[in-house]
Design a protein around this nucleic acid. Structure first.
Length: 678
DNA sequence: CCGCGGAGTGTTTTT
DNA sequence: CACTCCGCGG
């Protein structure tokens, strides 16, 4: 039996040892909330609570896995605890009870690109796509519909607040929303929002909720500040009967407002559950005081002053975070590579360092530089492995086998064939629609296709390959292998860089070997898509050293590194130029910056470059408004990369920043200056 | 009806 | 600069 007292401080202990009733834990950055969850799970299990009656909902499946594997180290039975994201939990429950709410259990999950395509098809059917020139693109339409669902607000309300330019289309979008919903039902599709919506519907039924809550007696939700109203409702319904619900969050770190998340959930939690206990964790175990000084200064600038000051419990104070300016992105990338390697020489592994940024495109140059120098790195955020064209192509073969009604995947496969365009694909789709299974489609449609077309032979080949892959005797990996054999010639034809992509597909085959069921593989890919893989640098070079992390700030949530570099601290990047129109959005950007700063344990470097390019035109970047204040600048060291000359510029009063950026001569001076050195 | 090439447009964050 | 949309030639 592990003694919790020796591992936790008093507030942490109080949270970890509470077992029944509602509990809200407000946990500041780095205050050990992961630790609390880990030990609370352990404590429940040590007190003979059945592990499978504990449900841990987290933001990513990785987070759940991390916490549970740590708890399992203390007590083996912890591995039977149920954990994952809201979406993966919803999938699991829906798979089990789909029939109870009148839904076919062989549904497919639409990922984002699939959903866009589905919306596009609905637009065509409604006659919305032609002539109307300024009608929004399908991805925007998907966003509007999605936000309306996640916030529980009407289309009209969302348009008024966030897309005023499209307000004239309220009626059309409203009818599109209905059409899209009907389309998904008819085709047996669920998108990400449906997973949550359907789970909620299911839980609203007294009988079904009773079944489910009888199994899950202890509910824990991590990152509660980033849940939306739908997820808040689900949490409430799960806990309603027994009231054993613990949620953990930090409202200063709420960065998913764009997805409908609202910190109202945290505020209202104690009202929803009576006798809710509230525990605050305020001591910071992660960072040096110098880093926390900056974090506190950022928090000081927030409109809503959330938690209190972060105080370091570490004894060492460390260096002040550095602020470094560069002439262009190239110099910035070179400097970061140099610095990262310098730390590595001094004994800090690459895996203990990370470069964070607001948007993926910011890191492209750095990626090139890292590759050039053979420094192994790993990218999180941005385009998912699953969403790359070749992976989607290959998985489509498996998707039609799992769900022969999946017309989006059929369409994708048909369009790969030379000579088949949108029209022909539609015609063939209509022909295969009446057949319920693969062999029917293969034998009656593809095999006997009218030979007068140049694509008939290829169609027969496709039919044969899919029919073979559908045979029961093959396992998931073998099915994927059959599909790959068929796909390789098409891949070579379609992509110039096919060797790289083929490599990805081989990786995919390896991943598939770990699965016994096809639907399970497909669901995992859609719901918890692996990040874009490690960029393999000549393996021999660094004998499999664990790589440097490059990540969007959003994907870095909940993680920590010894050394953190934050790229692109200029206005328009962080805060994003798209957020500048709206006070609330700027506040969210500020919290994003706060999250980034609080990831660092020992060393933190902020950087920006002055020469930016937008649409091919060179422009001059201003420093981020989040840094442009005396209070913030005082917490920073602006001499990190400086020699004497630079120091002169850096010693100028902070207020000068505003004027420097507006005067051409000064601009020129800075550029000339940086030309010489960095 | 397919597919190529040129012009124009607009550019986050994620399950 | 990358992606989409449109118009024309095969």
């Amino acid at each position: 039996m592990i003694d919790l007292k020796s591992h936790l401080n008093s507030s942490q202990l109080e949270a970890a040892t509470s077992a029944t009733g509602a509990l809200l834990v407000i946990a500041g950055a780095g205050s050990g909330k992961t630790r609390v969850i880990e030990y609370r799970v352990l404590n429940l299990v040590q007190n003979n609570i059945e592990p499978s009656s504990i449900l841990l909902l987290t933001f990513t499946r990785e987070a759940a896995r991390r916490m549970l594997s740590r708890a399992t180290r203390h007590h083996p039975r912890c591995k039977y605890v149920d954990g994952g994201t809201f979406h993966s939990f919803a999938y699991k429950i829906l798979k089990k009870y789909a029939k109870d709410i009148g839904f076919d259990e062989s549904f497919s999950i639409l990922d984002e690109p699939d959903a866009h395509e589905a919306i596009r098809r609905c637009c065509v059917e409604l006659g919305l796509s032609d002539k109307t020139k300024r009608f929004p693109r399908s991805s925007t339409l998907k966003d509007i519909i999605s936000i309306s669902i996640n916030k529980g607000a009407s289309i009209e309300h969302i348009l008024e607040r966030e897309y005023p330019q499209f307000i004239t289309y309220t009626k059309e979008i409203e009818s599109l929303r209905k059409k899209y919903a009907a389309y998904k039902l008819q085709k047996n599709y669920l998108d990400y929002d449906d997973l949550l919506t359907f789970l909620k519907i299911l839980l609203e039924n007294d009988k079904l909720r009773d079944k489910i809550t009888r199994k899950y007696r202890f509910i824990m939700v991590d990152e509660y500040q980033d849940t939306n109203s739908l997820q808040g409702d689900i949490t409430y319904l799960l806990g309603k009967e027994h009231g054993n619900v613990m949620v953990v969050g930090d409202d200063a770190q709420s960065i998913y407002g764009f997805r409908g998340a609202s910190h109202a959930n945290i505020m209202e939690f104690p009202k929803k559950f009576s006798h809710c206990k509230i525990i605050k964790l305020e001591e910071n175990y992660r960072s040096t005081q110098q880093i926390l000084d900056l974090a506190n200064a950022v928090m000081e600038d927030m409109e809503n002053k959330y938690s209190k000051c972060l105080v370091a419990s570490r004894g060492d104070s460390g260096d002040r975070p550095g602020l470094i300016f560069f002439k262009d992105a190239y110099g910035e990338a070179e400097w970061i590579c140099d610095k990262v390697m310098e730390f590595r020489e001094d004994g800090t592994d690459l895996s203990e360092q990370a470069v964070l940024f607001r948007s993926s495109y910011i890191s492209i140059l750095l990626q090139a530089e890292l590759s050039k120098r053979n420094i192994p790195y790993q990218v999180f955020g941005g385009l998912k492995f699953y969403e790359t064209a070749h992976v989607k192509d290959l998985l489509s073969y498996l998707k039609v086998i799992a769900n022969p009604k999946d017309e989006l995947s059929w369409s994708r496969l048909l369009l790969l064939i030379e000579g088949i365009g949108p029209k022909t694909a539609e015609r063939i789709l209509a022909e295969i629609a009446p057949y319920p299974d693969i062999s029917g489609i293969s034998d009656k449609v593809f095999k006997q296709y009218d030979t007068k077309y140049k694509y008939s032979a290829e169609l027969a080949k496709l039919g044969a390959a899919i029919k073979k892959a559908n045979e029961d005797k093959y396992n998931v990996e073998e099915r994927l292998g059959i599909a790959l054999d068929y796909y390789i010639p098409l891949l070579k034809d379609k992509f110039d860089d096919w060797p790289l992509r083929l490599n990805d597909l081989e990786t995919l085959k390896d991943i598939a070997s770990g699965y016994n069921s096809l639907p399970e593989l497909l669901a995992d890919f859609a719901i918890e898509s692996p990040e874009r893989g490690v960029f393999k640098v000549e393996a021999a070079k660094r004998d499999d050293e664990r790589p440097l992390t490059l990540s969007t700030i959003h994907s870095a949530k909940g993680l920590e590194w010894k050394n953190v570099f934050i790229l692109g601290l200029s206005d328009g990047v962080l805060p994003s130029s798209l957020a500048l129109g709206d006070e609330e959005e700027i506040e969210e950007e500020r919290r994003i910056f706060y999250v980034a700063v609080t990831r660092a344990k020992d060393n933190l470097f902020l950087s920006m470059h002055h020469e930016g390019s937008r649409g091919g035109i060179t422009q001059f970047n201003k420093i981020s408004r989040f840094l442009d204040s005396r209070g913030i600048l005082e917490t920073l060291d602006r001499g990190v990369a400086a020699d004497k000359d630079e120091q002169r510029f850096l010693d100028e009063e902070p207020q000068e920043f505003e004027t420097i950026y507006n005067k051409d001569q000064l601009l020129k001076r800075i550029i000339d200056y940086f030309d010489a050195d960095i």
